[in-house]
Amino acid sequence: MVGERVYRHGVTARTAHWLWALALLVLVMSGLQVFNADPYLDASDKSDPHKRVLGFTAAMQNGEPIGMTTIFGVTFNTTHFLGYTDDGMGAESERAFPAWVTFPGTQDLADGRRWHFFFAWALFVAFVAYLISAALRGTLREMILRPSDLPKLVPMQLYYLRLRRDPPPHGTYNPLQKVAYTVVLFVLFPLLIITGLALSPGVDAAFPWLTVILGGRQFARTWHFTLMALLLVYFATHLILVLTTGMWNNIRSMITGWYTLKEHDGVGP
């Protein structure tokens, strides 16, 4: 089995994967551009400084401008990184997120919104197409966490921490991978789409209960931002594991579809 080449990712899955990568990159960066226009998150319906969860401002301190980040009422000096940052025009100014993480780089709410909406559609279409294709091919079953995986979660974590010699026997994906993929596909993606839609006054008029269940429109904005942060945590983990568990094999399999089985790798659900 070890060394055997298996066709792991179909063409729809591979296309969807790289489209998601591109779309999510643009969505995060254009989202931060949009966020910069009013860099506050409240746990409320209307804007309410008393229910502020996160906020970025600039101020003067000893004649020098500083950037400040306030999380749950606790303020940190984050000059140059958050609050008072690179404006993309060779200077620094009052700006929550710096130009190098926003799209477009310079302050441009109108374009930021347009790119955000275009790639939101791209993500949505690729997501639905992938789910249908993966369900039909049967590969979705290999990724979804099932009750029999639960007892394997701790042993798998121990293996990653090098406290256990072998991982528990598993199929194509190990139980922790299944947790990650299940959460991303069935929790993060759908909730990102729903909380994003709740920010639209047109959608809110058609479905007034949407902001109600999310705790209000500003709360929906807070959820949307939080889910983005969770997705970035997933992305960092994903990247580290791709790089450290057979980088070329992993990357090649997502380009050509063919994957070479390593020790402990299984096949199937």
Binding site: V34, F35, A37, D38, Y40, D45, K46, S47, L109, R113, L199, P201, D204, R217, Q218, R221
Partner: peptide, 12 residues
């Protein structure tokens, strides 16, 4: 009604 600004803030 709620007034939602393009910048992000809302008021009632």
């Amino acid at each position: 009604t709620r007034h939602d600004c393009v910048e992000g803030w809302s008021a009632i």
